[in-house]
Write a protein that binds this DNA or RNA. Structure first.
Length: 565
RNA sequence: UGGGGAAUAGUGUAACGGCAGCACGAGUGACUCUGGAUCACUUAGUCUAGGUUCAAAUCCUAGUUCCCCAGCCA
């Protein structure tokens, strides 16, 4: 049952691929596989959409089929071209392509209108003068049937005339609708004479003011799939109840039947995924924007430093099923580290710098030492890093009174400076007001140049460093989960997800130093800062001042040891 | 109290009447010029109760729990 997915790892086939394979075997569509990704352009794409994108484009690719990009733009009040553009950019960034098959449901408005007329003529649709409130009242409840609209049995000619005049703009918003004549007593509420058209005197992002009546999503989606001859229409679980309605329209119209298959949407721990709430986070300025690196949006992940490969690998690993589930965000981070470990060049930087002076190193000397760019990738080559008498190291790499198992610098201790020398701490100065160390005095062993001792002696610790003489001052932004709880919606009575916002999700460090090889790094470039994590250059950077986002930290075994006490 | 779905280690996902497996997480150890990476080992599961069968996660019956649906949103 193993198949090869887009990233060439074997995974077992999910239930949707099993259906596609069965259809191919039986010759249902002569082996043709055609899917589509159908976003509404009313917001930015997030990691949940990535799951759907990878599924739809992935299935098509895997079985030699096609996948369309189609905007389901049936609600002019919420949709904007800005969203269209961002969605196009994000799907491309994820690595998928739709050739010339970029469609819009609004392309089908005229056809949809003609189909509505056809249903009216066949007595299967009617113009209803009930208000929205009245429709609600007559719909019944979950347990009791609805009642027929008094306009249900309007003569065909009258319906035709009224519908035409709806289109012509003779009536005000909400004054009438076109409804399908199905069954007001149906147990499935979607079948209780659902609205097909509503009057909306609103400009549409593509059709402008051409229309003042708009088809509902339910009267559009299935037919759009049909027009595009989609074989497998993949969507999320909440549309399962709508499938009978789509099938009703398809059958009444006698058009190509796409098969809809529903799967569970993605939930992630410590993450909010609903578009509405993401919009709130942006509007209420809990984050800096849709592309804030803490957002689960595709543009947020991109700015954070995620790679499309990591996102695709994640989507391949979580699988597809119908079970409501919440994936551990640690899996996403694992996929990220796995990818970045392979490809990110290494560099050194001190985020919380502490001065080290090497007493026996010549005052004005600067040496160029050899450093490997990526131990996982020999083709990445090597670089020179300058070494001098004064250095910056990480504040956490020195402890005046080290606990057991602490391998780093401490009074009298010898450690290795990565690719540099062995140094021994001989003294340190503290800030009299805080008692914290501000300067470490060391001696170095000239024989250990490059990091090896000719006498074969070992040191337990290796720490990173930057030459103070050549350091580039930069800003670094550290990120943590946006929410403090695995389930952000887990709140006390009267509170909402906002009370679970993590006040420490962003930490800005403005006095960091990195090695000079990073001076000309471009926005979007990714690096591993040794022993610290993966970082990428933020687009807010200027020629004078680089800003790095921490994409994800390295696995920190020492932190775990400390935590256990 | 209606209809539609779903229940497998902490999490996600396989097994489609024939040895419950994989991944993440967690833990232990090895190795290491990143306390990174890598490697080895360990941990831990079929919602419940009956039934059919040589054999049940899988089939049957009854129950339990969870999710979705009462927009002129998608």
């Amino acid at each position: 049952m193993a198949t090869i997915n887009s990233t060439n790892y074997p995974y077992s086939t999910d239930f949707i691929r099993a259906i596609v394979e069965e259809d191919n075997r039986s010759g249902k569509h002569d082996g043709r596989v055609h899917t589509r990704f159908p976003p509404e352009p009313n917001g930015y794409l997030h990691i949940g959409h990535a799951k759907s994108i990878c599924l739809n484009f992935g299935v098509a690719r895997q079985y030699g089929g096609l996948c369309n990009l189609r905007f389901d733009d049936t609600n002019p009040c919420k949709e904007e071209d800005e969203y269209v553009q961002s969605i196009i950019e994000d799907v491309r960034w994820l690595g998928f392509d739709w050739d010339d098959r970029l469609f819009y449901a609004s392309d089908y408005f005229e056809q949809l209108y003609q189909w509505a007329v056809k249903l009216i003529k066949e007595g299967k649709a009617y113009v209803c003068d009930l208000t929205a409130d009245e429709v609600r009242e007559t719909r019944g409840t979950l347990t009791s049937p609805g009642t027929n609209s008094p306009y249900r049995d309007r003569p065909v000619e009258e319906n035709l005339d009224l519908f035409e005049r709806m289109r012509a703009g003779e009536f005000s918003d909400g004054s009438r609708t076109l409804r399908a004549k199905i069954d007001m007593a149906a147990a499935n509420l979607n079948l209780r004479d659902p609205v097909m058209y509503r009057i909306l005197h609103a400009s549409h992002h593509r059709t402008g003011d051409k229309w003042c009546i708009y088809p509902t999503y339910d009267f559009t989606h299935g037919q759009s799939d049909s027009i595009e001859r989609i074989t497998h229409s993949l969507c999320t679980l909440e549309f399962e109840n709508h499938r009978p309605l789509y099938d009703w329209y398809i059958q009444a119209l006698g058009i190509f039947p796409s098969r809809q298959i529903e799967f569970a949407r993605l939930n992630l721990t410590y993450t909010m995924m609903s578009k509405r709430r993401l919009l709130e986070l942006v509007k209420e300025k809990h984050v800096a924007g849709w592309d804030d690196p803490r957002m689960p949006t595709i543009c947020g992940l991109r700015r954070r430093g995620y790679t499309p490969e990591a996102v695709r690998e994640f989507c391949a690993r979580i699988g597809i099923s119908k079970v409501d589930s919440t994936v551990d965000v640690a899996l996403l981070e694992h996929c990220l580290r796995e990818d970045l470990n392979r490809r990110a060049p290494r560099a050194m930087g001190a985020l919380r710098p502490l001065k080290v002076v090497i007493d026996n190193y010549p005052e004005d000397q600067i040496e160029e030492l050899d450093a490997i760019n990526n131990p996982e990738d020999p083709s990445a080559g090597a670089r020179k890093v300058p070494f001098s008498r004064e250095l910056w190291i990480e504040r956490s790499d020195f402890l005046e009174d080290p606990p057991k198992k602490y391998f780093r610098l401490a009074p009298g201790r010898e450690v290795r400076l990565r690719y540099g020398y062995f140094i021994t701490c001989v003294d340190f100065k503290t800030d009299p007001s805080t008692g914290k160390p501000v300067e470490i005095r060391c001696t170095y062993d000239p024989a250990t140049r490059g990091g090896n001792a000719p006498d074969g002696r070992k040191v337990k610790g290796t720490i990173h460093w930057v030459s103070a003489a050549r350091a580039v001052p930069v800003e670094v932004r550290l990120y943590d989960h946006l929410f403090t709880k695995p389930d952000p919606g887990d709140v006390a009575e009267g509170e909402d997800y906002r009370s679970n916002l993590n006040p420490n999700s962003l930490e800005r460090l403005t006095d960091c130093y990195v090695e000079p090889s990073l001076r000309d790094a471009a926005p979007g470039e990714r690096f591993q800062f040794e022993r610290l994590g993966y970082f990428c250059v933020d687009p807010d950077s200027t020629a004078e001042r680089l800003i790095f986002n921490r994409t994800v930290s390295l696995v920190d075994t020492w932190a775990k040891i400390q935590k256990k006490g």
